[in-house]
Design a protein around this nucleic acid. Structure first.
Length: 373
RNA sequence: GGACGGUUACCCAAGUGGACAACGGGGACUGACUGUAAAUCAGUUGGCAGAGGCCUUCGGAGGUUCGAAUCCUUCACCGUCCA
């Protein structure tokens, strides 16, 4: 179980297969985020139809509501949410970072105020693992501390804590049918990232995540950090870049050896009326689309683009109809999932460099146009 | 025919002598969003100029006043009631 094979490699880019109890992941992949055991606005059938192989859910949210023990009692997350392909649960570490005002971190763990009812809650590596074992995902994440990536002193402290917690997560883990991934931290600092990657590599996880990026640092720092970390992480394990991202980020990530991505962007943008394309975003609220009969992207094969005009989508968005969120979520997720599928094909065919160059050039060209306007 | 009440920007609606280009909603327009406290948040919404600024507005016309969306006269239209 949790065997990882590299099917093809071109430069640092890899096409691989990761075997889990709920099926094999053909990487590179983009995983839709379903924080509360649902990819917002979509049925599992729709998520599957657009080509997603893996869905992410969240420890913190499901622990607070409806409770991990309840989900275990009901047969686990797969059965509960009726998603029968692989699931990854995040450890709650990111909430430590994002719930800035209501948390207290110490070496043992984190005390939170619940965003739902204000009650005081506690997460530690052991509690996070217990929750994730109750949820029953195929891939579970070590409990980590994410920090503001440009603060050296704090990044170092958070990194050290993350390492100690990674040990404790391994020790607390009891199920053998779940793969526990370690998370590299260290902000944008080369020495910290190197230390973090080496320390975690020595712990021999079945997979590794790069955390703490795309949270405010520059794009150059993010890309440099990904390269540095992946040079150290073992090649014979999958690598997961957490919380990324945009089409450009996915291409740049794959070029630097990333296998798995997740991001809320496609589904959030969809609910906020924006359609993603490889070359930019389209705000469907804009009056310019009122009479536009074209699909969002004439080259897109998704359900939304195969059936609906920009004019109709603009109407749905404008009228605040729920279907707008569904159709835009399908399109946005398809765009990223399809991009990772095309990158896999390109790597298998030995054409990834060319594909990346062409696509990145098109993205750069569209951004230049926007700046001139 | 008479008595009251009303007419404010795209719509609803506050304002009853100076702090009013005019509260607040809605609508419209625009922007942001990267391991989801997010179907959210922010900005603009009389015209002109790169800000201070200038010009034109509160049903129409006229008047009082240093000054009017606010007071007076009159006309128009809408509503309720009495003949």
């Amino acid at each position: 179980m949790f065997e990882w094979e590299i099917n093809a490699q071109e430069g640092s880019a890899r096409a691989g297969t990761f075997y889990t109890p709920h099926g094999a992941l053909q990487t590179p992949i983009f995983a839709p985020v379903g924080t509360q055991a649902t990819v917002k606005a979509l049925t599992p059938a729709q998520v599957e139809e657009l080509g997603a192989q893996l869905v992410l859910a969240n420890t913190y949210h499901l622990f607070l509501r409806p409770g991990d023990e309840l989900i275990a009692e009901l047969g686990g997350l797969h059965s509960f949410m009726q998603w029968h392909k692989p699931i990854l649960t995040d450890s709650g570490g990111f909430q430590v970072f994002s719930l800035t005002d209501t948390r207290k971190v110490d070496d043992d763990g984190v005390t939170f105020k619940s965003h739902i009812d204000g009650s005081t809650q506690r997460l530690t590596p052991e509690i996070s693992i217990r929750i994730q074992e109750n949820l029953g995902a195929d891939i579970i994440m070590a409990f980590d501390e994410c920090a503001i990536p440009t603060d050296y002193a704090y990044s170092k402290l958070a990194m050290q804590r993350t390492h100690a917690w990674a040990h404790r997560c391994q020790a607390a883990k009891t199920r053998s049918d779940q793969a526990l991934f370690g998370i590299v931290q260290g902000g944008i600092f080369s020495d910290l990232r190197a230390e973090s990657a080496q320390t975690l590599a020595a712990l021999d996880f079945p997979g590794y995540a790069i955390g703490g990026l795309s949270v405010g640092e520059s794009k150059a720092d993010m890309l440099r950090t990904i390269s540095e970390v992946n040079q150290i992480l073992p090649e014979n394990k999958p690598r997961y870049l957490m919380g990324v991202g945009t089409p450009q980020d996915l291409i740049e990530g794959v070029l630097r050896g990333v296998d798995i991505f997740d991001c809320v962007l496609p589904t959030r943008l969809a609910r906020h009326n924006s359609a993603m394309t490889l070359t930019g975003r389209m705000n469907l609220m804009n009056a310019a689309y009122a009479r536009d009969e074209r699909p969002i992207n004439p080259d897109c094969q998704c359900y939304t683009c195969q059936h609906f005009s920009r004019a109709y989508l603009r109407h749905l968005v404008n009228a605040k109809e729920m279907l707008a969120a569904t159709l835009l979520s399908i399109h946005n997720l398809y765009t990223l999932v399809n991009l990772t599928q095309r990158m896999r094909q390109a790597i298998l065919a030995g054409e990834m460099q060319r594909f990346a160059q062409e696509t990145l050039a098109a993205i750069a060209a569209s951004q230049t146009v926007e700046e001139e306007v």
